[in-house]
Each structure stands twice: as structure tokens, then as C-alpha cells.
Simulated scan of single mutants.
Amino acid sequence: MTPSFVRQESRRGSTGMGKDDVIRVYWQPGCTSCLRTKEFLTRYDVPFESRNVLADDQAFEELARFGLRHVPIVTRGDRWANGAILKDVADLVGIEGVDMTMLPPQELWRRLELFLDGTMRLYAQIPDDALHNLLPNRPRSYTDLVYHIFSNADAFVEEKEGIPLVVESYRRRPAEGANGREHIAAYAQTVRSRLNDWHDKTFAACDWKKRADVFYGEQNQHQFLERTVWHCGQHARQLMWVLEGMNVLVKDPIPDQAFAGLPMPQKVWDD
């Protein structure tokens, strides 16, 4: 699988790094954009200081001077960029000529449906006694992960309804006592119905160049859709990885071609 942002080689510009110009990446395990950001900088030989905010309480305190409480964030001196937007990261650290070509909206939508369908197939294969096991070094259960995938898609539709995408949109979890298989399946069905309804009524007329109301920077609707799709896709890959780690023979896995052309991280999880 080759991420779209490496289809075209780019050259790194002069960073002019000095003692007070250290590049730092603030991240947490399992965060899709965090992993992609670190891989992006590593590919282009940009040295950075790794700051895992879940392993180091001081890391979030360092972000406070920027008024930030979310990741991924890349800082350089008194400047910062949100890792969700690789162009902004590239501008911050001096990488030039990165190809940001996106798949057409209709194809992105098809991939989203593949990932959501695949998520429920994979979730059904997790043993009952493992549903609430936690992911490595991250306080998120397998059930929480499935809920998060559908919540991402739900947040995309909410933005179209006038509800801005805020940090908390990506932090939602099922309520305690409402996190069994039947609850997750019901939520998934509700989200799919909302997606289908929006698609049938509005997709064809959507202005994909219009600015999206998202917290992480200046993005148009096409870019927001792309992020929603690969975000869901990366988490679906994590579900397959979880099953493989339990020595479960995965039935009907999501095929590799479903990820082709998307700006995915190479790895599934942080080392």
C-alpha cells in the first residue's frame, strides 16, 4: 500500500535549525494522524523530538503555551502546525513539492462504505470476552474503537447540518451500559442511515471546494471527506491487526486495494 502523499518525490528545503529551533511532534498511540505525521517527517529525513502525551504529563503542559490540548501537533520554536494537514507540516519544516492529489469524492464515498461495512464484519469476529480489552498503550477498548469509526462518519454528516467539527467530536465514546454488541450495531445502523440520507439528497450538489467547519485548520469539503475516509480506514486496519494478534483467522478482510490512493500511514500501530 502506497500513501498518496509519497507518489511524487519532494525535496526538503533549508530548515535553518538551531538550538532554539527544535522540531517536536506531540502524539499519542493509536492516533491515525499522529502516526502519519511521524512517518511523513521520517520519510523526508526531518529530525524531530518525539513527545508522547500519554506517556509524559509534561508534554501536554508544553502545548499549553500554544493554547492547544489535542494532537498531533508539530512545533518549531514559537510556530506550530496541526499534523492532520500535511501541507501545513511541510511548510513549517521546509519540505517542498509534496503531491496532495486526492481521489474523486464519489470514489472516496465508495471507500467509506467499504470501511464501514468491513468494520462491522471485523467487529463480529472479536470474541465476546475480548470486546472491552484495551489497545496497546491507549485507554481505548476494541468496542470504543468501532464506535469511534462510526462517530467519525457521523461527525462528517453533522458538519453538513451546521454542527462544527470540534476536538470533542473525535473523543466521543459509548455510554457506560450502552456499549454491548447490540448497542454498537444499532448506532452503526443509525449512522449508515444518516449517511445514506445525506448522500441521496445532497451529495451530487455538494460544493466540494467550500470550506469545511473543522477545528484542525483550513480545509475544503473534499479534503474533509478524504480525511474522514482514510481516518476510518486506518482504524479498520487496526481492527484486523487486533484479530490477527489474537490468532483469529480473519474472515473476509478489507482488501488492500481499498486503501490504494489514500494518504494512509504505512504502519498500523506505533512501535
Rank of each mutant, 00 (worst) to 15 (best):
M1L: 11
P3L: 08
S4I: 03
V6L: 08
R7E: 10
R7H: 06
Q8L: 13
S10E: 13
S10V: 13
R11H: 13
R11N: 14
S14G: 03
D20W: 04
I23N: 02
R24F: 09
Y26I: 02
P29R: 03
C31D: 09
C31P: 09
S33W: 15
R36M: 03
T37L: 04
F40A: 00
P47E: 12
R51P: 11
V53K: 03
A55C: 03
D56P: 12
E61Y: 11
L63M: 06
L63R: 02
R65V: 10
F66K: 05
F66C: 07
F66G: 06
G67A: 00
H70Q: 14
H70M: 10
I73F: 13
G77R: 01
R79S: 08
R79V: 01
W80I: 03
A84Y: 11
A84G: 15
I85K: 10
I85Q: 09
L86T: 07
L86F: 04
D88F: 01
D88A: 12
V89I: 05
V89G: 06
L92I: 04
E96H: 15
E96S: 09
E96P: 03
G97W: 05
V98F: 11
D99N: 13
M100T: 14
M100N: 12
T101P: 04
T101Y: 05
M102D: 09
M102W: 07
L103F: 02
P104C: 06
P104T: 08
Q106S: 13
Q106Y: 05
W109C: 08
R110W: 05
E113D: 09
F115A: 00
F115I: 01
L116R: 00
D117M: 07
D117F: 06
M120V: 03
R121F: 02
R121K: 06
Y123A: 07
A124L: 05
Q125L: 04
P127H: 06
P127L: 05
A130F: 07
L135Y: 01
N137R: 14
T143L: 01
D144P: 04
D144M: 02
V146M: 00
H148T: 07
S151T: 10
N152T: 15
F156S: 04
E158M: 11
E158N: 11
K160M: 12
E161P: 05
G162K: 02
I163T: 14
L165H: 11
S169Q: 01
S169A: 10
R171F: 11
P174A: 09
E176L: 14
N179D: 15
R181T: 14
A186V: 06
Q189D: 15
Q189G: 12
T190S: 12
V191A: 02
R192C: 12
S193P: 01
L195T: 01
L195C: 02
N196K: 11
N196Q: 14
D200H: 04
T202P: 03
A205Q: 14
K209G: 14
V214T: 08
F215C: 00
Y216D: 08
E218Y: 07
F224T: 14
H231Y: 01
C232P: 12
G233F: 06
H235T: 00
M240T: 15
L243P: 05
M246N: 08
M246T: 06
V248L: 05
L249F: 10
V250N: 09
P253V: 00
P253C: 03
I254Y: 02
P255M: 09
D256G: 03
D256P: 01
A260T: 13
G261E: 05
P263M: 07
M264A: 03
P265S: 01
Q266I: 12
K267R: 15
V268W: 02
D270E: 13
